[in-house]
Simulated scan of single mutants.
Amino acid sequence: MAKSTLYGIGVNAQDVENIAMALGCKSGSLPILYLGLTVGSKLKKLNDWKPVIDKFNTRLTGWKARSMSFGGRLILIKSVLSSLPLYFFSLYRAPTGIINLLESMRRKFFWGGAGDSSKMAWVKWDDILVPYESGGLNVGSLKAKNLALTSKWWWHFRVESGALTLFGRSEADRVHSLLASVSLNNGSPDTWKWALNDKGHSKTSIMASEMDEKLLQNGYQPSETVRNKLAPKKIEIFAWRAIRRRLPT
C-alpha cells in the first residue's frame, strides 16, 4: 500500500489524509495524470491541452515543411497530425479555442509555413477538409472527429449493458424501468440500430463525416474535382488548385 495514493472526490481533504494514514498509503488531490490523460479536470483551459499542443509542435519541428511537396504534407496531416489528439478527443470535448489552434497548425503546415512564419493560403481550409466528391481533399475537421468520438459513448450506453457501470447507472435505470412495459417489435426483443450503417453498428468515421456535413461551410455540395490514385499526390493537388484557379500567376 505504500506505493498507492488515495484520492477523494467530494470529500474533505483532511478526511482523505486520515483514511490514507489508516491504510498506510499516500493521499493526493485532483487533477492527476493517468495513462497520459488528465483525470479530475474538465479540460476547459488551454494549459490542460498542453500535452496535445506539445505533440503537434514536436512533430512539426522535426518536419521540414518548406522542403516537402504538397502531397507529402497532405499525407502527414492525414496520417499523423489528425491522429495525435484522438486519445484526448475520445474522452473530452475540446474547447473551440483548442480546435481552432490545432486547425491553424495543420493549415499552416499544409501551405508550407513553419514556426511563427506563415505562407499565403490559396484555398479556404474548410474547402480542403471536405470529401473528394465535394471538391475537397478529404482531410476532415478535428471538431467532427472530437464530437464523433465523444458521442460514441452515448451509443455504448444504450447498446452495451455494462457500459454505464463506469459512470453510474441511476438515470439509465430510471429510463429503462419506464420503458420496460413498452414493446416496439412483437415477438423479439427491441434493440438499438445505427441508421447510418447497414449493419446497424456505430462507426466513428461515418459519424464524423455526417457531422462535417453540418459543420463545414460549403455543406458538402457536389463540386468538380480531380482524383487519380495512380497520379502522384503533388500532381493531383496541382490539378485541384488549377481547377479552382488558385495558382500563383
Results as ranks from 00 to 15, higher is better:
153 W>M: 04
104 S>M: 03
100 N>G: 00
121 A>C: 14
202 S>F: 14
185 N>V: 03
206 I>N: 02
211 M>L: 13
91 L>M: 11
139 V>E: 07
164 L>V: 15
194 W>E: 07
188 S>H: 13
153 W>P: 09
170 S>E: 15
162 G>H: 14
103 E>S: 01
193 K>W: 07
175 V>L: 09
149 L>Q: 01
91 L>N: 05
171 E>K: 14
223 S>P: 03
142 L>R: 00
211 M>V: 08
225 T>Q: 10
92 Y>R: 01
201 H>T: 14
106 R>D: 11
135 G>A: 06
175 V>Y: 05
152 K>W: 06
186 N>G: 00
166 L>K: 12
128 I>C: 15
187 G>C: 08
106 R>M: 15
218 N>M: 09
111 W>A: 03
151 S>E: 06
98 I>L: 05
129 L>N: 06
226 V>S: 14
113 G>T: 01
213 E>P: 08
212 D>Y: 08
163 A>H: 01
200 G>R: 00
196 L>Q: 06
168 G>R: 08
213 E>S: 13
101 L>W: 04
88 F>E: 10
123 V>C: 11
133 E>C: 13
195 A>T: 15
157 F>S: 04
160 E>P: 03
157 F>V: 05
121 A>P: 01
209 S>K: 15
119 K>H: 14
133 E>V: 12
138 N>P: 00
137 L>Y: 06
219 G>S: 01
150 T>I: 03
191 T>M: 09
99 I>Q: 03
220 Y>G: 02
182 V>Y: 04
156 H>A: 05
219 G>V: 04
104 S>L: 04
133 E>T: 14
189 P>K: 14
200 G>N: 03
151 S>L: 00
109 F>K: 00
94 A>M: 06
114 A>P: 07
89 F>K: 02
224 E>L: 15
213 E>F: 08
138 N>E: 02
213 E>K: 15
139 V>H: 03
186 N>A: 11
154 W>Q: 02
87 Y>N: 11
131 P>L: 09
110 F>M: 11
204 T>P: 06
174 R>L: 12
126 D>P: 09
105 M>C: 07
179 L>F: 02
225 T>G: 01
155 W>A: 09
208 A>H: 01
218 N>I: 08
189 P>Q: 14
176 H>K: 14
100 N>Q: 14
122 W>S: 11
152 K>L: 14
89 F>Y: 01
150 T>F: 10
130 V>Y: 00
214 K>A: 12
138 N>A: 12
128 I>V: 11
139 V>F: 02
137 L>K: 04
158 R>Y: 09
121 A>V: 04
99 I>T: 06
121 A>H: 15
137 L>S: 00
122 W>N: 03
209 S>P: 05
92 Y>G: 05
91 L>E: 01
149 L>R: 05
127 D>W: 06
201 H>E: 11
90 S>E: 03
116 D>G: 13
151 S>Y: 07
200 G>H: 04
224 E>W: 13
218 N>E: 10
98 I>F: 07
89 F>S: 00
187 G>Q: 02
120 M>L: 15
209 S>G: 08
202 S>M: 12
213 E>I: 05
222 P>L: 10
222 P>F: 06
170 S>V: 13
136 G>F: 03
130 V>C: 11
124 K>F: 10
164 L>Y: 11
182 V>L: 10
192 W>R: 02
163 A>D: 01
